[in-house]
Design a protein around this nucleic acid. Structure first.
Lengths: 211, 211
DNA sequence: TTAAAACCTAGGGATTACCCTTAGTTATGT
DNA sequence: ACATAACTAAGGGTAATCCCTAGGTTTTAA
């Protein structure tokens, strides 16, 4: 009994590349390939594979969100993330949402096979370098995807002003409040986001889409 | 007489994907595939194709730079850029350096064929959406995407440290230089990027993929 | 092989950000 | 109406950032 695999990636050449590689492997059947999240969901109503290779950058639904949706519908599905860049935060968020592994697109045939076999045996597959990075990062704080900070109206306004590279003085004038108040808001934002300074605020704000 | 095509991309699945697609097309011969700029240069000493599909993000030499080098060595070579993201500035720079066209990695078989035929006939090939974007840009839009700042080795090191939310003092210790030197580098970075402060540095660095 | 350009280095001085504490004044919701 | 959260803002520091200037080194190109 062969392992049924599907692939979702909006880059057609990636889609066909993985398909080609998989077809060269024994005991693996490429069930379906899709170029969008929507197409994946539609196809899965008919046939669900054992394993799905899922790109993180999809045009319609974010790969991280799609992971969650799919696993809700098909809990036994094993999802392996796909991406170009080695963004640790993405890996973590995928895994937090239930993904079983992660592959960079420069992976070779052997890695694909290892990933499929590992995941099919119910174990997680991570490329070595990524393992180390996640370990490094998990020693920090506020790196988990579940953490979703809530800013108040005023804090969001200050955040946006910081993003516009305004000084505290300028923000105060813009919002008709005291410099000291702006500072208080900035301090609260830093505290909530776990940022060390304004650079950290912007990094996390972009990551958590608070702008 | 078939058209000889080579492919350079550090993402192995992309490499194999394009290869697979090209093999399905008539009158086209895949001469060689390479995963790095170095491998491309070495292979070309033996056999040079008519057309090269060249990724922009290579581990060893930047695709834009490699375009220039290759065209110096092989002026009749036609280069078609490959990338995931539709960064107009990259397209412009590739074309400026002599590339004949540009393809996004979500391109289908038909587009690949059209691109090859167009370029083989000595004409430039650009996907429609990209054409429009380049046009939009040249019509004096303020979002100057063509602007691609170049940072020095030291500046890049400081930039990365700033991104890590380190203080100037910590950066100085990390790089074994004076606090004042770090500040000087930061000033130069701000100047080059047109940023008003460190927040601006990070914004533009993320936008221009300087990290 | 020079001269120019680019890069790395770092000082003084002014400004701004950061970090405490404390505390009065609005909204918000049960 | 009453606790809770949010917005406001003061004093008083320390540390970091920002800006200008400039000497020394390395790299690049004529």
């Amino acid at each position: 009994m062969s392992i049924k695999v599907s692939i979702t990636d909006d880059h057609y050449v990636v889609l066909r590349g993985i398909e080609t590689l998989l077809k060269e492997l024994p005991n693996i059947e490429v069930l379906s390939i899709h170029e969008s999240a929507k197409a994946t969901l539609e196809q899965f109503e008919r046939k669900v594979p054992d394993i799905l290779f899922l790109d993180i950058n999809l045009p319609d639904i974010n790969g991280i969100v799609l992971t969650k949706q799919l696993l809700k519908l098909y809990p036994s599905l094993k999802i392996i993330g796909l991406t170009n860049h080695e963004d640790v935060s993405f890996v973590k968020r995928m895994l937090d949402n239930g993904a079983y592994g992660y592959l960079l697109k420069n992976a070779h045939k052997e890695e694909l096979l290892t990933a499929i076999e590992t995941v099919n045996n119910g174990k997680c597959y991570l490329q070595k370098e990524m393992q180390r990075k996640i370990l490094d990062q998990s020693l920090g704080k506020h790196t988990n995807a579940a953490f979703q900070p809530k800013l108040t109206r005023r804090e969001t306004e200050v955040l946006k002003a910081i993003y516009e590279e305004l000084t505290t003085q300028q923000i105060a004038e813009k919002l008709f409040i005291s410099v000291k108040t702006v500072e208080a808001h900035r301090m609260n934002i830093m505290s909530k986001l776990g940022a060390k300074n304004s650079v950290g605020i912007i990094k996390i704000a972009l990551e958590k889409q608070l702008l």
